[in-house]
Nucleic acid binder design. Structure first.
Lengths: 203, 203
DNA sequence: GTCTATAGGGTGATAGAC
DNA sequence: GTCTATCACCCTATAGAC
């Protein structure tokens, strides 16, 4: 974007410091929130001197964008692996199982996407809608799965599934109870089974 | 509720400024988030000179606690009114209808409790668990209703209901789509109907 | 390219006049 | 009790040495 080349190749190299900073930012933002996180926190987590951060990212906001990119990459990695599973119901249940596996993290820090989206939505600059894209990607993927299950209301079901994930994450986090993830996850898996058994059907 | 009462105690009063500050804090925190809100923002919203704030609240954190109190009061007002309705299914559906009514606010700023809880959970001081109490109160009330419906799994159902509310608020907010609240609200009302029709039953 | 030192701006909090 | 003036600190961002 800034330099001559934004592709995969001609970027200035620094021992992967840029990547380290981006993923450190994603993690620290998740743990502390964007507003409470200082550039010094990120520099420390990435093991990079504070002033050097500005060589890679001109502003703190650019670091937020980079963190969003890291989340996007992580999500497409997950859906990519799920896509190798044989059928849509299995894929959806594996997605849910993954959420439940992360229950301890969710109970302590909430959903990495959801909490970031909620925080950015409080802003009024251009970043206030940037996180929505990541969530939208997850919803779109789920919608595709429900459609493969033959559901006409795939879009609504996808929203319902992701909303359930966000909701159980918020409660697990607020109450500090990972068991909320376990119980609600089980319920969601049964729900998927019901939908799959009922076969192709509309709302 | 001017100067004359100030509760039942002998607290210093100043034309209800303390209350104005508390409710202004709750609103501004909801709109901007705690971290991005300055004391000056709150003073302005409450129409109180900045320096005067410190006469009523020694620290910003005390203002957060006061905002939590305002939320608690608001919630008990809501459940109090709902309790006058004839049966538990009607009460639960009225609760849901109230959420849907607030869809525009939820789409812009999220759930007032949920977003505050999420933000406070990023902290490590004593406040990181304070918001949980308000959510817990809502869950407990819902659990009572489900129990009156004869459900053995009232506790799980209450968590499911409040999680659904939090989830649809997060998505409506992130996507800026109030319709998410409408659609998911309708689904929840149907769900309550199903539970009520199926009569006293366990999980 | 890498890093240090520091400027500059804003915020929470206090002292003390009225 | 009310409010102004101001301090002290921290954080983002920059200038410039290496």
């Amino acid at each position: 974007m800034t330099d001559s080349q934004a592709g995969a190749k001609a970027k200035p190299r620094g021992g992967g410091k840029r990547e380290r900073l981006a993923s450190a930012a994603a993690e620290v933002f998740h743990h502390q929130g964007v507003e409470r996180t200082t550039l010094s926190d990120i520099a420390q987590a990435a093991d990079v001197p504070l002033g050097n951060v500005y060589y890679y990212f001109k502003t703190k906001d650019q670091l937020v964008e980079a963190a969003l990119g890291a989340h996007r990459d992580r999500l497409s990695g997950i859906t990519g692996r799920l896509d190798r599973l044989p059928d849509p119901a299995t894929r959806l249940k594996a997605l849910i199982a993954g959420w439940v596996e992360q229950r301890e993290v969710a109970a302590r820090y909430g959903c990495p996407f959801g909490t970031l989206a909620a925080e950015l939505d409080k802003r009024e600059d251009g970043l206030d809608q940037a996180a929505a894209g990541v969530l939208r990607g997850l919803i779109d993927w789920a919608e595709g799965q429900f459609r493969q299950l033959g559901r006409d209301d795939a879009s609504d079901l996808a929203v319902e599934l992701v909303a359930a994930y966000q909701g159980m994450s918020v409660l697990a986090n607020a109450l500090r109870e990972p068991e909320v993830m376990t119980r609600q996850g089980r319920r969601l898996e049964e729900w998927i089974d019901t939908l799959a058994r009922s076969g192709p059907a509309g709302a």
